[in-house]
Amino acid sequence: MSRPVVINGKFLSQKMTGVQRVAFAFAKGLKTRFEADGRGHELSIALPKGTEPTELGIPQVAPSRLKGVPWEQLELPVQTGKRLLVNLCNVGPLTHKGDILIIHDAQAFISPQSYSKPFGTWYRTILPHLASNAARVLTVSNYSRDCLAEVGVAPAEKIEVIHNGVDHILDIRADATALQRMGLTSKTYFLAPGTTQAHKNIGVIIEAARRLEADEIPVVLFGSATASAFAEAGYILPSNVVLAGRVSDGELRALIEGARAFLFPSATEGFGLPPLEAMLLGTPAVVAPCGALPELVDDKALFAQADSPDDWAEKIRSLARSDAQCREFGMAGMRQAQKFNWESATEKLYRVILETQRL
């Protein structure tokens, strides 16, 4: 008889970033897949105290008294018991063995300056132990698998790759109020994530924008980083950089669809949802040839060197001047991004679960 499955629902208590978005999509897909097989009663989710109910509709395994790390390390193993625990967001309880563990990247090892010292130390300490205890270790790209093996988290032969989907972006309704609020005209600006994390490499975009001031080409940065945060990180913003600030999912979709191109200069990336989301919406992407990005975008995006503002400025000018080039990379990028869908990704995870249940 197969073991019932419990999803580690910690991600539902956290701010929605890329890792949490992936976990939500997997949980939603697994619910549908278990119900289609008539095994819906075998799937439940464990939630830390205070977590708001969601539209997932997966039964909760038991009420919780703790939250955060104490919940995950002390209470979650007791709630799970002998059931199969699926950890979707890098970590899980150290004392529970035989689990499924998805580790998204090795950033805490290869880009420690991007994280606080306590966070980085915790991840670098716990991940090898969790991987050793896990029955199956999964990650999101060949690049991540190779990095995790290289830093000693787990041998490459123990790590299986399941690429993320990106078609969740199609379920979001565009909200054009962000464009109106900032006075942006569709297809005249370039869009990039605005973050000061070291590996996100935003400095090359800021310096490229400086080279484009005379051309009056707007570069819009979205995200939580404020003008003061950029200043504290040593970045002086040129006049053609527009800070969109935090935006809703609907506003972000509208910003992506309205952009001339999406800029993604990360020096390392375990997967890279944002450029593929943009490509799926028909917006050309310009990316650095780093991390998992070449593996995922293939030759269907433009590449600009991670350390060359001149190269970025040149690619931006080229797209700004050529409608034909925008159409070419927009169509090619859409076809490439369509290869990454949650139905396929969930089916692969479901297969891993069935195999692990029999161990």
Rank of each mutant, 00 (worst) to 15 (best):
L184F: 08
T185W: 00
T185Q: 13
S186R: 05
K187N: 02
T188M: 00
Y189A: 01
F190K: 00
F190I: 00
L191Q: 07
L191Y: 03
A192T: 15
A192D: 02
A192Q: 04
A192W: 03
P193W: 02
G194P: 09
G194S: 06
T195S: 15
T195W: 00
T195F: 01
T195E: 02
T195D: 01
Q197N: 01
Q197F: 00
A198F: 05
K200Y: 05
N201H: 13
V204L: 13
V204A: 05
I205M: 12
I205W: 11
I205G: 07
I206W: 04
I206N: 08
E207N: 13
E207S: 13
E207Y: 03
A208E: 09
A208V: 12
R210S: 15
R210E: 15
A214D: 12
D215C: 06
D215V: 01
D215E: 15
E216N: 15
I217Q: 05
P218M: 06
V220Y: 00
V220S: 03
G223D: 09
S224I: 08
S224P: 03
S224G: 06
A225N: 10
A225V: 10
A225P: 09
A229N: 14
A229I: 07
A229Q: 14
A229C: 06
F230M: 06
A231R: 14
A233I: 12
A233L: 11
A233H: 15
Y235W: 14
L237K: 02
P238T: 15
S239D: 07
N240Y: 13
V241E: 06
V242G: 06
A244S: 15
G245N: 14
R246S: 15
V247C: 14
S248D: 14
S248A: 11
D249W: 01
E251N: 03
A254D: 02
A254Y: 02
L255W: 00
L255Q: 03
I256N: 00
G258P: 01
A261E: 14
A261C: 09
F262T: 08
F262Q: 10
L263R: 08
L263V: 11
L263A: 12
F264E: 05
P265T: 10
P265Q: 08
A267W: 04
F271S: 03
F271I: 04
G272R: 05
L273K: 09
P274G: 15
P275H: 13
A278G: 11
A278V: 10
M279K: 05
L280C: 12
L280Y: 06
L281A: 11
G282M: 12
G282Y: 13
A285L: 08
A285Q: 10
V286K: 15
V287Y: 05
V287W: 03
A288T: 10
A288Q: 10
P289C: 13
C290S: 14
G291W: 03
G291M: 09
L293H: 07
P294V: 10
L296M: 04
